[in-house]
Amino acid sequence: MSWFKREVKGIITTTEEKKEAPDGIWNKCPNCKKPLHYTEQVENQYVCHYCGYHLRIGSKEYFSILFDDNQYTEIFPHLRSGDPLNFTDTKKYTDRLKDTIAKTGLDDAIRAAHGKIGGLDIMIACMDFNFIGGSMGSVVGEKIARSIDYSIQNKVPFLMISKSGGARMMEAAFSLMQMAKTSAKLALLAQARVPYISLLTDPTTGGVTASYAMLGDINIAEPGSLIGFAGPRVIKETIKKDLPKGFQTAEFLQEHGFLDFIVDRREMKEKLSSFLGMMKN
């Protein structure tokens, strides 16, 4: 049956011999819809080389981009959330945590590590959106608090990379208290005259925006990032007015004075190194 096999110069090939591309080698840019090869993504620091769209990445990728030679020491790596409210919706919170930990390889929605950027010491806490939408629970607040303590004790600048859907509803008031807790810790950091840089990425919303994400000595965002407290639909229904074009984008916020800089991810390490050098002096 020649329909099901080819014969070319004596070599027979069948559909059984075809090799499929491994998962993750290719994906599509969410903005321009053009195909992106994984190697090209890594080389271009996960920015689409066609349209400049900044792909969503996690702590592993940010650490590799920012820390010198990808060398860093992670602190408090195994903190995990409890279930103080015995929360159950369609699924038990404890079961969802177990499933998410197994799926992502993360213990919660944040990792913290210290190392060097451009030869200068720094402490970085970075959120992971893949862990329950980067939601802020008690572990997120505790890791940020301990990271700030490390910065104060060692006089090391603190960089917070935010990427979150907001407070984690499964922890209710325990989650909301992290807003006050982290803000109080940042006040102590300011009293100790230790620099704090806040980097807001896509998306940064809810209680995270309402607390530590907007309290930096320098507030930076990546291009096109969604940044806000409540969603546009909720705001529109509340104020009964149409929202301006580009509302809640990094560019809109910078134009209205909420951000100091918008920095391309490919230039981020150089810019941060420059800021750290100025702050040190």
Rank of each mutant, 00 (worst) to 15 (best):
I101S: 04
Q191A: 09
P195K: 00
G52S: 02
I220N: 04
Q71N: 10
S225D: 05
D264A: 11
A213E: 08
I124R: 07
T238Q: 10
K19T: 09
I227M: 00
N154I: 13
K92F: 08
W26A: 04
C32P: 03
M169K: 02
S147G: 13
H49D: 09
K269S: 01
M279C: 03
C51P: 07
G115E: 03
I57W: 01
I218R: 07
K245D: 09
P84M: 11
K155M: 14
I132Q: 05
Y150P: 03
F87N: 12
I148T: 07
L159I: 15
F129I: 12
L66V: 06
K19E: 08
W26D: 02
L243K: 10
F247P: 00
D217F: 11
A112P: 01
S273V: 06
Y62F: 15
T73M: 07
V208C: 08
A192G: 05
H54M: 12
Q248N: 13
A172G: 01
S164C: 13
D23F: 14
K181T: 14
N31E: 10
N219D: 04
F67E: 06
F275M: 02
V8Y: 12
P232T: 00
D68E: 08
M179K: 13
I65R: 08
L120N: 02
S164F: 13
A173R: 06
T39H: 11
H37M: 13
R266Y: 04
G231H: 14
A180M: 14
Y212C: 14
T201C: 07
Q254M: 12
D107H: 15
V156L: 14
I235Q: 02
G133P: 09
I218C: 03
R6W: 12
L159T: 14
S183T: 15
L176M: 09
G119F: 01
L36F: 10
Q248A: 14
S81H: 11
K185L: 00
T201P: 03
T94E: 12
Q153M: 11
P84G: 10
K9T: 13
R266L: 04
Y150F: 15
T13E: 13
D95L: 07
G119Y: 02
W26K: 12
V47R: 07
F258H: 08
I11K: 09
E222H: 06
